[in-house]
């Protein structure tokens, strides 16, 4: 009888344990992909992951959608295949093309197992009923099938494949930066129509609409992070404290809080190793202080 009971308990416990491992993996993917940074409208005390955050861009304002498992207003009705198609192909369950403000251009590089773990984790969270707000975009974006055209020109689908000859740590860093962390979305300047300028990867942006000044994170000694050691970068990811002792603010503070500082220590190091292995690009980005006139507030 005792054995039977143990067997029964085991048969119940085993699938639960497996799903717990998947949930834990999903939680790590969720952090690495910084989902909470944009899908929670922190500025207006929005509920976690219920969307509504106003993402300003040169093409208008995007309002991020609800990604809680609420079946009506969130993603609660999505199948595994719906979720995979959204992240890897940028296509909604209804067959619409997403604007690349949703970084499927990076998420397409995620491994299928990680995408499924992320879905399992999201579905384990509290559903919040909150309807999505429509984007407020320029007429030439809304009046044309712009997302589809953009994708056919600039979007390359495909999972990340380890680069042979590079260490496991470097490849892990590449995966974290390129597939999940989508660092390029802000740190790489864009050409016309918002396509990333790959020749200037990570070289920073003087003025990004809605974000501000984005520093050069290539290992250039003069204008980038060439003087930082791997340890200095890891410490920055943990604390937000830069080499000069300044503390990050703006979007990056949120990325430290909701993503980088929550990663396993090995992942932070892998990101640092990968970033410092990049081609140094001399591109001076200065934080300019805006000359504000008194009248603005009167």
């Amino acid at each position: 009888m005792k054995h039977l009971l143990t067997a029964l308990l085991l048969s119940v416990a085993t699938p639960l344990q497996a799903s717990e491992a998947q949930l834990e993996r999903g939680r790590q993917v969720f952090n690495a992909a910084s989902c909470a940074v944009c899908h929670t409208d922190k500025e207006n005390n929005g509920e976690p992951l219920a969307g509504g955050y106003a993402m300003k861009s040169d093409f208008g304002t995007f309002y991020t959608p609800n990604i809680t498992p609420d079946p009506e207003t969130g993603i609660g009705n999505w199948s595994d295949e719906d979720f995979i198609r959204a992240l890897q192909q940028g296509i909604s369950p209804q067959g619409d093309h997403y604007f690349p403000s949703f970084p499927y251009t990076a998420y397409t590089k995620m491994h299928r197992d990680d995408v499924l773990a992320l879905k399992a984790y999201l579905f384990s969270l509290k559903p919040v009923k909150k309807a999505n707000r429509e984007h407020d975009l320029a007429f030439y974006v809304t009046m044309t099938p712009s997302a589809r055209i953009w994708k056919s020109t600039y979007f390359k689908q495909g999972e990340f494949i380890d680069v042979p000859g590079k260490s496991a740590e470097w490849n892990r860093g590449a995966y974290l930066v390129e597939a999940m962390g989508h660092c390029s979305e802000c740190h790489t300047p864009r050409k016309a129509l918002g396509a990333l300028d790959e020749g200037m990867a990570f070289a920073g942006v003087q003025k990004m609409t809605g974000v501000g000044t984005v520093p050069n994170i290539t290992p250039d000694k003069k204008t980038g992070i060439g003087r930082w050691s791997v340890d200095d970068l890891v410490y920055y990811f943990e604390t937000g404290t830069t080499l000069s002792g300044d503390s990050s603010g703006g979007k990056m503070a949120s990325i430290i809080d909701n993503s980088l500082s929550l990663l396993p220590a090995g992942d932070r190091k892998a990101i640092a190793v990968y970033l410092l292995s990049q081609q140094p690009i001399e591109n001076s980005i200065k934080k300019k202080k805006k000359k504000r006139e008194k009248e603005e507030f009167e």
Partner: peptide, 20 residues
């Protein structure tokens, strides 16, 4: 020490702009 950097970061996030 970690608490100090946390407090710097959280104040900068709310009260200092990164925009020009």
């Amino acid at each position: 020490f970690k608490k100090i950097s946390d407090s710097c970061k959280s104040c900068h996030e709310k009260f200092r702009t990164e925009e020009e």
